[in-house]
Design a protein around this nucleic acid. Structure first.
Length: 1105
RNA sequence: GGGCCUGUAGCUCAGUUGGUUAGAGCGCACGGCUGAUAACCGUGAGGUCACAAGUUCAAAUCUUGUCAGGCCCA
């Protein structure tokens, strides 16, 4: 049985009830326990970090991450949804440091690494409860119980296995030679250096994010210096010039860089000056010549050359400790990074900067560091040994030494921003730190190939942001000098002999290696620092090996999630799980993940694909080879939606400092989850979305209420009539066939749009359909439900509305899981206990093309247009719809449509409250025609003569146009124009009550006869009685008794004449026209009357007369 | 400095392969409805499509540049 609908819609109460119901009935679990007839639709949940609270942006992702799995489940797929948490990495250490008051690695070491790790581990899940609450309350179906967490030993083993894949892969051919030349191992996992922001006082490397917080403006001594070329020019000494803001780096100068395309000049000094002695020649960028004039006395330019011409020139080492005869050091090198915006347009290079490092390595120049990692000048730099790199006098002493050597041009005080440790205030330096890399450059082609096959939303990311990133990729530094993370599973002999190094791929392998070394792993071994560092291994010849003291980039953890979530391959059963759930069909994360998760997922999967190709080939496993050779499997994701920011109602970023951060859970508790979800579907999520309470009530108005109102309308009358599905004979009217057709159109559109990951189009189609349903179908069909006869027409109305409404509820289930479930439980389950227990276990509706009637849809559109014209006329003539009129003339200048449109005339007459609608197609007496060229058709034919033709068409007379309409041709020069070549527009002749939209015309008979006036009065009276009924709190099926006193003879006549009509409309059993009535006095079209209404004796729940 | 995105009605946004009346919702004005209504319905006003140049018979749409905003990277 249907249950009556409460008159108040309490969404939060519905949410609570259904969350409880889903949990009790295990609805989500049931959906994943059954096998999908269409197989698996695979979804990967990107792991959020949990040491912060969830915000609205996460809720947008939750809403989207929930939509497609629900949709696909209803379509017959199984969609596993394993949640996950990102539990390693910098944010957790920073939280721990802040709370423990630590500012440096040394303090952590003093505190004790074990205690520190334990603290981090406790911090990880501090806000997990809040996350779980928010995720459940938005209605997300996701497996939180079996969520993966990156700090678990099974996950760490997947990290190790993945690294082992890289360890086993080796470069080949030229790339291999190149790597060996740089002193790197040719493996895909290799050790090198990376220039990092480093705090020598605290021994800590800082992330870019941390560095950004500690810039300060400082004034430093800067130097213009010169380097003497080995080769003289016409017996003149030639010097390269350079400017530096960090004189201490000059102690380590190894090369000088130029831009290959910048123009450089050679200047010859004609007298002694700051820059040097008469006769010396100096090379500088032409663009800097003017700025450097103050340093020169008399001089002239003796040469021009491009940077590329300078490349390779050798110069004398600035200092005696620098290599003097290395094949590539102390040379000019060319690189695009050099600019002529400041300095001399030449740049001195030392290994203390990212670009410097890159260029020096590229040119095979050996590492020389005159300042060590403690910030002190090294012992081999005799004159300055042991001095602090930022000591003011060091710069001065370097200046003096250079002046003595004749290599100084000038000094200058210069203010620039310099990075400091934001926690201790001590200066940072960029320093090459040892680090381990994955050779993503060797995977570049694979990644680019795989990227072409990824379905990006929005699409421009593929070739834009992401594609560019891949094009400019460098090897991936996967290690960090931190504590709380997956440990790097590499053991190296104490003497640093990397050729003996061991990369461990699992705990089992580690255990056996430990045992082979004569030890055992302790019980309850935790593969984190510091326990992992206590594990030492032995080489075959008995040398001690220690672990390389690094943890892994937490992005690396996240990138291998496709197998990490199952602990593949070490965990039992993970092989099947991974194979069944790889690659995935859909992920959805923030746009900022292009360099984050989107990238690391791709890098990790390409790495594994490459390794698996090799491995499968080696083992002759054809099936596996075929799988991994297919570029469609190189990316672990096939479709990705990028989300933009959620802004506040004003369009501002949400931030704590602005105080405009919204607590999602509070919103769900106040408004319910469905309206919040709808906001994230109504416009595409890759555009920034504005979000506030106003937007929520918009969503309520746009979808929730129309759905709710349709539902309550249906239930109210179905209860009165005790309607059951299948009851009565059904004979669909035009209106019924139309709404069914529109319904199938909707289903088609929603299905196609969702399969295309275009949620906004799907949502737009739903809004449109709800408007048609409530404001046309139901409004125009109300009387079919009200009327007393239980006939075929009524049965058809019920059957049609039921079909469309329940279908709509299924289609809405992925979007509005709560309200649709609530309606489903009553409308479907209430009448059919055999239906699936939940709408979320039911099937998504299939669009049935046989029930579409596109011609009918198009004609109904024409009816809407005609109605709009007529309503505008009524408005203009001040004739309210309640006043009946004799006729409307509808002129459609299209012969063929008359028969097609005739069936719609009654609908129009009802809607417009006229006695008849007359259809015509001849509008000659009503409108004047004008024509414009049909540019699309004519443009192709007449080309550049278009403007002339257009002018001629515009000048056509009404008669000429009519002739063309009648099948004639219009001649202009050599062109013969037919009906298809022009567009005809009609405008109303003045003085008539008519309107045209340029095509069709509507004319209104505005004459009011006494009969029409009387009927209008009767309708006014009905209208007032209905108001009174409602005010008096009567039930809609209550019978009433009426007493009426008319204060004018014409009104009395109208009342008498329409007595039966009034009674029928208002369910009045008794009607008395009296000369005196005590009641409410009201007005009907300027005539007053007094009215008394009381409930009649007989009360019934049924409308049968 | 580089890359990508965005600029259309007061506001938020649609706008197909270029084709001449540029759409919707909200807001506003006016009117209506009250037997589905935490209501709703109708009608109307409101736009040099950021600016400039170019391609074309024809540009909101294609190209280039400028300006403004956003994101990412240096």
């Amino acid at each position: 049985m249907l249950k009556p609908v409460p008159n108040k819609l309490d969404l939060p109460a519905i949410d609570r009830e259904l969350l409880d119901f889903w949990k009790r009935e295990r609805i989500f679990e049931k959906s994943v326990e059954r096998t999908g007839p269409k197989g698996d639709f695979v979804f990967y949940d990107g792991p959020p970090g949990t040491n912060g609270v969830p915000h609205v942006g996460h809720m947008m992702q939750s809403a989207l991450k929930d939509l497609w799995p629900r949709f696909k489940t209803m379509q017959g797929f199984r969609v596993l949804r394993k949640a996950g948490w990102d539990t390693h990495g910098l944010p957790i250490e920073l939280t721990a440091d802040r709370e423990l008051g630590f500012k440096s690695k040394r303090e952590v070491d003093a505190y004790g690494v074990q205690k520190y790790i334990d603290y981090c581990r406790q911090t990880v899940f501090r806000y997990k409860g809040m996350w779980e609450e928010a995720i459940s309350k938005i209605g997300r179906f996701v497996d939180l119980e079996n969520a993966y967490a990156t700090y678990q030993p099974y996950y760490i083993q997947s990290d190790w296995w993945t690294l082992k894949q890289a360890w086993n892969l080796e470069l080949e051919g030229e790339a291999r030679e190149q790597a060996l030349k740089l002193g790197q191992s040719p493996r895909y996992l290799y050790r090198d250096y990376r220039v990092m922001a480093y705090s020598p006082r605290t021994g800590t490397t800082l992330s870019n994010f941390e560095v950004a917080q500690g810039y300060e403006d400082v004034t430093d001594l800067t130097l213009y210096v010169k380097f003497r070329l080995k080769e003289k020019q016409d017996s003149h000494d030639v010097y390269l010039t350079a400017w530096t803001t960090t004189p201490w780096t000059l102690l380590s100068n190894l090369a000088v860089a130029v831009h290959p395309e910048i123009e450089y000049v050679t200047v010859e000094l004609l007298e002694d000056c700051d820059a040097g002695k008469a006769g010396e020649r100096l090379i500088l960028a032409q663009a800097r010549h003017q700025a450097l004039l103050p340093f020169f006395g008399k001089h002239h330019i003796v040469g021009h050359q491009l940077g590329a011409d300078l490349a390779g020139k050798k110069y004398e080492p600035m200092w005696e400790w620098l290599p003097s005869d290395h094949e590539s050091a102390m040379r000019v090198v060319a690189d695009d990074y050099v600019t002529a915006l400041d300095g001399t347009g030449l740049v001195h290079l030392a290994y203390y900067g990212e670009d410097d490092f890159r260029i020096l390595r590229k040119n095979g120049i050996p590492l020389v560091l005159a300042v060590d990692k403690d910030g002190l000048v090294a012992d081999f730099v005799k004159p300055f040994a042991g001095r602090w790199f930022r000591e003011e006098h060091l710069d001065v002493d370097i200046l003096k030494a250079l002046k003595e050597k004749g290599l100084l041009i000038a000094k200058e005080k210069h203010t620039h921003s310099y990075p400091f440790d934001y926690r201790t205030g001590s200066p940072l330096m960029y320093f090459p730190r040892p680090a381990w890399f994955i050779r993503t450059t060797a995977l570049k082609e694979m990644m680019i190939e795989a990227n072409k096959l990824i379905g990006w939303r929005p699409e421009h990311i593929r070739d834009g942001r992401f594609g560019n990133w891949l094009e400019n990729i460098s090897d991936w530094n996967v290690t960090r000098e931190r504590y709380w993370g997956s440990p790097l599973p590499l053991w190296v002999p104490e003497d640093g002999d990397l050729s003996e190094a061991v990369c461990v791929e699992s705990l089992a392998e580690l255990r056996s290696l430990v045992e082979r070394s004569g030890n055992t792993l302790p019980a309850g071994f935790d593969p984190h620092k510091p326990q992992i560092d206590e594990v030492t291994l032995l080489t075959k010849d008995g040398r001690v090996m220690r672990r390389e003291d690094f943890v892994l980039d937490s992005w690396f953890n996240a990138g291998l999630m496709p197998w990490g979530q199952y602990g593949f391959p070490a965990e039992a059963g993970s092989d099947e799980q991974f194979r069944a759930q790889y690659p995935c069909d859909f992920i959805c994360e923030g746009l900022d993940q292009t360099r984050g998760w989107f990238y690391t997922l791709l890098a990790c999967s390409c790495l594994v694909a490459k390794a698996q190709q090799d491995d499968a080939k080696k083992r002759g496993d054809r099936e596996r080879a075929r799988f991994w050779n297919d570029p469609r499997n190189w990316s672990s994701y096939r479709n990705v939606i990028c989300t933009e920011l959620v802004l506040d109602h004003e369009g501002r970023k949400m931030s704590k400092s602005k105080g405009n951060v919204v607590d999602p859970v509070a919103l769900f508790d106040k408004f319910g989850a469905d309206p919040v979800r709808w906001i994230f579907y109504a416009s595409n999520p890759w555009n920034a979305i504005r979000f506030g309470e106003e937007e929520i009530s918009d969503a309520v108005r746009a979808v929730i209420l129309p759905l709710w109102n349709s539902y309550t309308f249906f239930v109210t009358y179905a209860l009165i009539d005790e309607w059951r599905p299948g009851q009565g004979t059904v004979a669909p009217t035009l209106m019924d066939r139309w709404i069914v057709s529109e319904y199938h159109r909707l289903i088609e559109k929603v299905t196609v749009s969702l399969e295309d990951f275009d949620v906004a189009s799907a949502a737009g189609a739903i809004s449109r359909f709800l408007d048609l349903l409530t404001n046309w179908y139901i409004r125009r069909s109300r009387r079919r439900f009200w009327k007393s006869d239980s006939d075929t027409d009524k049965a058809t109305a019920y059957a049609t509305l039921y079909e469309v409404l329940t279908g709509l509820v299924y289609a809405l289930a992925p979007f509005l899981p709560f309200l649709s479930e609530h309606v489903y439980q009553n409308l479907v389950r209430g009448l059919n206990p055999d239906a699936p227990a939940s709408v979320h276990l039911a099937a998504f509706p299939m669009a049935n093309p046989a029930l579409r009637d596109e011609a009918l849809e198009a004609r109904m559109e024409r009816v809407f247009e005609a109605v709009t014209l007529a309503r505008a006329l009524r408005q203009e003539r001040n004739l309210r719809v309640r006043q009946p009129l004799t006729s409307v003339v509808w002129v459609v200048p299209d012969q063929s449509t008359e028969a097609e449109l005739a069936p719609f005339l009654q609908i129009m007459a009802d809607e417009l409250n006229v006695k008849s609608v007359k259809l015509r197609h001849d509008d000659r007496d009503l409108v004047t025609r004008s024509a414009t060229a049909n540019f699309k058709v004519l443009g192709k034919r007449v080309g550049s003569r278009m403007p002339k033709v257009a002018k001629a068409v515009a000048a056509m007379t009404d008669e000429q146009i009519q002739a063309v309409e009648g099948g004639g041709r219009f001649r202009f020069e050599e062109f013969e124009l037919g009906l298809d070549d022009i567009q005809i527009r009609r405008s109303e002749k003045p003085g008539l009550a008519l309107r045209s939209d340029g095509f069709m015309t509507v004319a209104l008979d505005t004459e009011l006869t006494p009969e029409l006036e009387a009927e209008g009065m009767a309708r006014e009276i009905v209208h007032h009685i209905q108001n009174l009924r409602k005010q008096s709190g009567f039930d809609i099926a209550d019978r009433i008794a009426l007493e009426v006193q008319a204060h004018s003879p014409s009104l009395e006549a109208a009342v008498l004449r329409y007595k039966d009509y009034i009674c029928k409309e208002t369910l009045a059993l008794d009607f008395e026209l009296k000369s005196a009535v005590t009641g409410t006095t009201l007005d009907a079209n300027g005539h007053t009357f007094t009215l008394a209404v009381r409930r009649a004796n007989r009360t019934t729940n049924k409308t049968e007369a």
